[in-house]
Design a protein around this nucleic acid. Structure first.
Length: 376
DNA sequence: CCGGGGTCAATATGGCTATA
DNA sequence: TATAGCCATATTGACCCCGG
């Protein structure tokens, strides 16, 4: 694969300085747990080095919790995010929207209504008793019902606050470890954590930089999305596609979705890279499927982007049945086939900035920042 | 039919690391 | 010292096939 070194135009070359080892947590990203978040510094630096021309928008076709969208918003660039996961869409929308009027009071009323609900209807959710204590189930059910009927425009914010505490009040050990453990939580903890999640979210929203640009978030499958849904010309794409056979976003948010009345199994079916597709068997996915999916995505990006626009990807490697797959090369080749030229490819060290990685088995210590430019 | 053996996918848990 | 994480894989259980 050709590697064209970036030769800059007076700026310090973007080939260097992507590690951000000293990055600290950002309050806006902390409003809801989400796996594999961008460090905000990465989209920030990409926007800085490859700014879209005036009037053009930024697109993140795998927007997740919306980090890239917030960075665009903060510097006045309108943006569009797409994600198949309704939890991702909820987070992206709440973090980029106006603060709903009277949210704290409404949250208080919701809590009171929930406490007064003496016969909450607990929905039918698989393995519910295994993962939630009965009194916790009742409290969550009461809160969801009270949120459903609350007035004002803060329903999404309250749903986000409730969603953010689900794993903490469940028996699940941690967000990524699916083991049931004794955690000593009761209904009171549910209400307390809900209350503080609302406050934390409002505080984070209040402390945002002055908002200069609109953010539109679309819940859709990028593989089948109607091009006309992307209703602004796109001058810059900043995204991190899901890695095949790596993390499962649907699984991470499974009980959040059940509780909010959403369907995690439908999300699983369509999620790119979900490990369920990679089990051994006749229909199991391989790296070839990921190639096909990326070719599809790059075709869509070509259609919505302007000539000269940059498409930036942060991608790592993954392991499929023992084989290490270099996803960056797959994305770069798909982009080249769709009419993009490689402008930059550089490795960034992830060990220092991510506390989570356990890829020692594969000796994976870096991920790739890849920038492609749309040709005419 | 029915039950043993095989296949496959869903689920749960062990193990490890770096960070707070 | 406890916590939490773009994991790997053991365990479990649903399902199928086939011979009796």
């Amino acid at each position: 694969m050709n590697h064209i070194p970036f030769t800059g135009m007076g700026l310090p070359g973007p080939n260097e300085g992507w590690d951000f080892a000293d990055s600290q947590s950002d309050p806006l990203s902390a409003i809801h747990p989400y796996p594999a978040k961008f460090i905000p510094s990465i989209p920030r630096k990409l926007i800085e080095h490859f700014p879209p021309r005036k009037g053009l928008a930024l697109l993140d076709p795998f927007c997740g919790s919306g980090t890239a969208l917030s960075e665009a918003q903060a510097v006045g660039i309108p943006s569009i995010g797409v994600d198949i996961n309704p939890i991702a869409v909820m987070i992206s929308r709440v973090r980029s929207s106006e603060i709903p009027a009277d949210a704290l009071n409404i949250a208080q009323q919701v809590e009171m209504a929930a406490r007064a609900d003496l016969a909450p209807r607990v929905p039918l959710i698989p393995r519910l008793d295994h993962w939630f204590k009965p009194q916790v189930q009742s409290a969550i059910a009461s809160l969801t019902k009270a949120i459903e009927v609350c007035g004002g425009d803060c329903r999404e914010l309250l749903r986000l606050a409730l969603s953010s505490i689900i794993v903490r009040v469940s028996n699940q050990d941690s967000d990524t470890r699916y083991a049931a453990v004794e955690k000593a939580v009761d209904a009171e903890d549910v209400y307390e954590r809900f209350r503080s999640a609302v406050k934390k979210t409002l505080r984070a929203l209040e402390n945002r930089p002055v908002r200069l640009a609109g953010v539109e978030v679309i819940e859709a499958d990028v593989l089948t999305i109607d091009r006309s849904m992307i209703d602004k010309p796109i001058g810059l794409v900043v995204t991190s596609p899901p890695y095949p056979n790596a993390y499962e976003y649907w699984l991470y948010h499974k009980y959040r979705m059940w509780w909010l009345g959403l369907d995690p199994l439908a999300v699983k079916e369509r999620e790119i890279g979900a490990r369920a597709h990679f089990f051994k068997g006749r229909n199991s996915h391989t790296a070839v499927d990921f190639q096909r999916q990326m070719a599809n995505v790059l075709g869509m990006l070509r259609d919505v982007m302007v000539v000269g626009g940059h498409a930036c990807f942060v991608v790592g490697r993954s392991r499929i049945r023992g084989e290490i797959v270099d996803n960056a090369t797959i994305v770069a080749e798909a982009a080249a086939a769709a009419g993009f030229r490689e402008v930059m490819r550089t490795e960034r060290v992830i060990a220092a900035s991510r506390k989570s990685f356990n890829l020692s088995h594969a000796n994976i210590k870096t991920e790739t920042v890849l920038v492609m430019r749309k040709q005419n």
